[in-house]
Computed example of a mutant assay.
Amino acid sequence: MSGNLMKAVLFDRYGAPDVLYIGEVPRPEPAPGTALVRVAAFSVNGGETPWRAGDLRPFSGRKFPKRVGLDFTGEVVALGPPGKHLGVQPVAVGDRVWGVLGRTAGFGSAAEYVRVPIDRLGRVPEQVDLVAAAALPVATTAVTALFEKAALRPGERLLVRGAAGGVGYAAVQLGRARGAEVTAMARAANLEFVRGLGAEHLVDHRTVVPAELGRFDVILDTAGSEPWTYRRLLRPGGRMVTIAFDLARPVVSVGYLAASWVHGRGRVRFFSGNPNRKHLDDLARRVDGGELRPAVHAVFPLAETAAAHRALEAGGVQGKYVVRVD
């Protein structure tokens, strides 16, 4: 392979996981205010599978090849000149770092190298190896949802939908650490897993009757289906944060969330995680403080990224599927 090329996971058409393959693309060079990171590992995230399948065509377009990979861990191998607002570089060559590609960057961390703005990098805690750490960067979404958007307080009742998934498993741990009474909703096979994370009450999402769950101060919804049903479970002053919408009924789902925001005084909030260095450093402090630990369901080599996508789509993940880049 030429010295200015690198391996990356690509796809030339929309479809099932088998459309993914390992190809060669130009290796990026560090630009001002950015770092070049040699990727150690990344995880497979829920938003990537509909992107790859073509469910998001209105946003993703028809230009190919396309890339996958949203988060990453790795080592800084080069730095561009400082950006005009940066001053002292907050990371150095050789630092172990993690991050999540920004909204404007899209996907692309499923590769040997990634170029990242320095203000979107954080240092990985020393006690966590880089492969396990790849299960954690999107936990910044749970931190933002619970503490910035919902202002979760000790003693409040918290419901986490999709509690065994990549954001949900972090939310259960963080809710317990905050002193909330955590109810975790997941498939039956995953209930013991979320109990081990600190959930006090366990609910099988396939058999649940929502009206029988009682009332909650905060609901974190990572599933996106039937938000109107779960909004009715909020106590007076309750807050519901959703990070997903129903792909089967996107117009209805998005329309409801928008109406809830306008007419419900913000009781239902939708957001997409977009962490910067402040969020990543806060995540590291929570890991160091014992509030949060990574959960890796399985590790795949880069050549088997399609298998990791297939496993995620099959359901039943406990934490994260991580792909190791050799």
Rank of each mutant, 00 (worst) to 15 (best):
R286M: 13
V323K: 00
G266R: 05
G273K: 08
V299T: 07
W261L: 06
R269D: 05
R285V: 12
G290Q: 10
H309A: 10
H263S: 11
A308R: 00
V296I: 09
V323C: 07
S272N: 12
H297Y: 10
A284H: 10
A258R: 15
P250A: 14
R285M: 10
Q318C: 02
D282C: 01
R277W: 03
R324W: 06
V287F: 11
F300V: 00
G289Q: 04
F270M: 10
L292R: 02
V325C: 01
W261I: 06
A303R: 14
D282T: 11
H309D: 12
A307R: 01
T305V: 13
P301Y: 03
G316C: 13
A284T: 03
V325D: 05
V251S: 11
G319F: 01
F271C: 07
V287G: 12
A259G: 07
A303E: 15
G266K: 02
A303F: 08
L280I: 11
S260R: 01
S272Y: 10
F300Q: 09
H309P: 03
P301W: 05
Q318P: 04
H297D: 11
F270T: 02
D281M: 08
A306Y: 10
L312H: 10
V317F: 05
L292H: 00
R267L: 11
V268C: 15
V317W: 03
P275T: 11
R265H: 12
V252M: 06
A311N: 07
P250Q: 05
R265L: 04
F271H: 05
E291G: 05
R310C: 04
P301M: 02
N274A: 14
S272C: 10
P294D: 03
G290S: 08
W261R: 02
R267P: 03
Y321L: 05
N274R: 13
D282L: 09
V262I: 02
V322T: 02
N276L: 08
A314G: 14
R286C: 04
R285S: 15
R265W: 11
F300N: 01
V252C: 01
V299C: 12
W261Y: 02
G289F: 01
Y256D: 12
D326H: 14
L312M: 14
V296E: 00
N274C: 12
A259L: 15
G315I: 15
R285A: 15
G290F: 13
A307W: 09
R310V: 09
A311H: 11
L283C: 12
L280A: 08
G273L: 00
S272E: 06
R324Y: 01
G316W: 07
V252W: 02
G319P: 11
P275H: 08
Q318A: 01
A284W: 04
A306H: 00
A258H: 14
V299I: 09
L257A: 08
V262Q: 07
G264R: 08
